[in-house]
Amino acid sequence: MNANILASLISLVSLLPTLAQQSLDSAYRTTGTAVVAAFDPQRQVLQRSSAVILNGRQELCYGIVISADGHILTKASEILGSSTWDVTVDATKYPDAKLLMTDPTWDVALLKIEAKDLQPVVYAPTSDVPPGTWVVANGATTRTTRRLLAGIVSAKIREIPPAGGAALGVILKTKSKSLEIEDLSEKSGAKEAGLQKGDILLTIEGRKVKKLEDIATILKDRKAGSTVKIVYRRGEKELSADVRLASRSEMFTDQMNRNDQMSGEFSNHRSGFPRVMQHDILGAASVVGGPLLDLDGRCLGMNIARANRAESFAIPVEDLKTLAERMMAESTR
């Protein structure tokens, strides 16, 4: 009985704050306005050097300003479902951005807007910062003002191997010894590359394909995220395209596991990255493509995926810098 009273006493102590004050006002929570206000210097960097990528009035994702004359890096798979893009930097809207090129390995696109005197991001010297280090990224946005979310570096830099097998994302039917596309998955590389229903596949990577087994053989050892060259026939014309192989789990979202089901929105393309840093900024799934900043406002990387409810990935600055320089060089060639 004595023990019982003691036990009650102890559990009672935990009840006491309940009586006084139960719940922390949302402004003081980690994503709340009062906490976020402490990051105003970093917010100003987002205001100048992050971009909002729009299709009409719909915000697709964010981007990083990497040149004064309007080169913007963003997450490719978030924008390739549209064919025209407007870009907002600071309070100015730049219409009709040009898509210069994409990099399927990192899922990054390079856009160009007609602008001058923009302020490109300043790269941080290294992404090798200890876990617990503050990081800042784009939160929601208004037409003129960038908002932010803050979090911390939460795990070691590493590769995220592709999840599930690699696939074109098409349903094929055999028609007089040829393979005709009967349907395409909305999130497939085939759809992104412009393939359509009724197209006849002729070759993949230079090898003739006449039956389904031919395709299985060619794709067997390929990774999601890599591309294959496909030659196909549409009507009388023979066309070709570089098609990104997507992972099955990315295209067929009904194959969600328990953790996916509790995660709300997540990026469709969230695996198959050579190297990522991980942090705990967990906004909407569209909060990708923009810069990850340190407290000095320098760019530590690019937010590339909201993987699930508890994990966000960014391309580390070393890789991002190399990629940006290579894409700039190749696009001006």
Partner: peptide, 29 residues
Amino acid sequence: DRGAVLRLGRLVRIAGTTFQSDCMLIGGD
């Protein structure tokens, strides 16, 4: 390769035998 995942937050609610925080958790945690 990843290690245990770190998340930062605040204690946002205390009720009976439960603490609520804004550290984001998922299965496995």
